Simulated scan of single mutants.
Amino acid sequence: MPLRTETYDFDEEEQRLEDKLDELDDVLDDVDDADIRQRFENERPQLRAHLEGVRWARDEAYDAEYAPMWDADVDAVTFGGLTGGEFGALEDDVGEHGGGSGAVRVYQVAKGTVEAPYVDDSMGDDERIGTVSQLPVAYLKWARDRIDALTGVGGNGEMSFRALYEEIVENSQ
C-alpha cells in the first residue's frame, strides 16, 4: 500500500514544468556568478526531459507502435509513494541483479505506478518491470521524479528556483 497517491493530469503537468522552466530562466537573468549559474543550468536538461516525457504520454503513447503496452488513450496517470519496505525490497532486487541508477528508475516506476495504461492488477512484479522497461526514458524520468516526491515525507518539498537562489546568495555572504 503506497504512502500516498496522486493523479497527475498531463496538461497540468505540462504547465507546471513550463512554469518551472520560465522561473529558471527568470532566476538565470539575475545570476552573475558562473558557479551558481552552472548549478542552475544543470536543472534545465532534467526539466526538458520531464516535459518531453509528459508530452509523449499525452500525445504519442497510445499511438506509438513501439509502446503497445500503453493500451489506452488517457489524460492522467496515478503514482504512489513507496513505503520503506517497498523501497528496501526495490534496492535488494536491483542489487541482486547488478543494476545501476537506470534499473532503479525502472523498478521504482514499476512499483510506484498505481494506475496507468501499461499496468494492471493481474501483473506480477517481473511482468510490471519488463513492461515499464519498454517505455521511453523521458517518461520514466518524469514518473520517477513524481514517485520520489510522493515517497518523501512532509509533502513534495520542492523549493522554487528563486528561493533556492536566494538561499545560495545568503549563504555565500
Rank of each mutant, 00 (worst) to 15 (best):
A57S: 07
R128S: 07
D73I: 07
S133A: 14
D71L: 11
P136H: 08
V119R: 00
E60M: 07
A138S: 13
E115C: 06
Q108M: 05
I129Y: 01
D71G: 15
R105S: 07
K111T: 00
S122T: 15
K141F: 02
D71E: 12
G85T: 11
D63L: 12
S133F: 12
L140S: 05
R128I: 08
S101T: 15
V137P: 12
L47H: 03
L51D: 04
L47N: 07
R105E: 10
R128Y: 01
G81S: 00
Y62M: 14
I129T: 01
V77S: 02
M123A: 09
V74L: 05
E52H: 04
P117Q: 10
S122V: 00
Q108W: 02
V106Y: 02
G85V: 06
D75Q: 11
G85S: 15
L90W: 03
F79A: 01
Q134V: 11
E96K: 05
R105C: 09
W70F: 10
P68R: 14
V106L: 03
G130F: 03
G81W: 00
E115S: 01
A110M: 09
P68C: 13
Y66P: 06
D121R: 08
R128F: 10
G98H: 07
G85A: 14
Q134K: 08
P136I: 05
D125L: 14
H50E: 10
E52Y: 05
G98I: 14
A49E: 06
E52M: 11
I129V: 15
A64R: 04
Y66M: 13
Y118P: 00
R58I: 15
L47M: 08
A67F: 07
A103R: 08
V106N: 03
G88S: 13
V109P: 00
V94A: 01
A116Y: 07
S133T: 12
Y66C: 13
L140W: 02
E96M: 12
A103M: 14
A67S: 13
E52F: 15
V74A: 13
K141Y: 04
E65P: 10
V132W: 01
Q108K: 04
Y118E: 08
W56E: 06
V54E: 04
V132K: 00
V104Y: 00
D73P: 09
L82N: 00
V104A: 11
E127S: 13
Y107P: 02
E86G: 00
S122R: 14
A76H: 15
D126K: 13
E127W: 08
G102K: 12
G99D: 01
M69K: 08
G81D: 03
T113D: 02
V132D: 01
L140I: 07
R105N: 03
W70K: 04
G102Q: 12
G102I: 06
D120H: 14
D75M: 12
G84V: 11
G98S: 14
H97T: 09
E115W: 02
G80T: 05
F87N: 08
G98M: 07
V77I: 15
D93K: 10
G99I: 04
G88F: 13
A64N: 09
V104G: 12
P117T: 15
V119A: 00
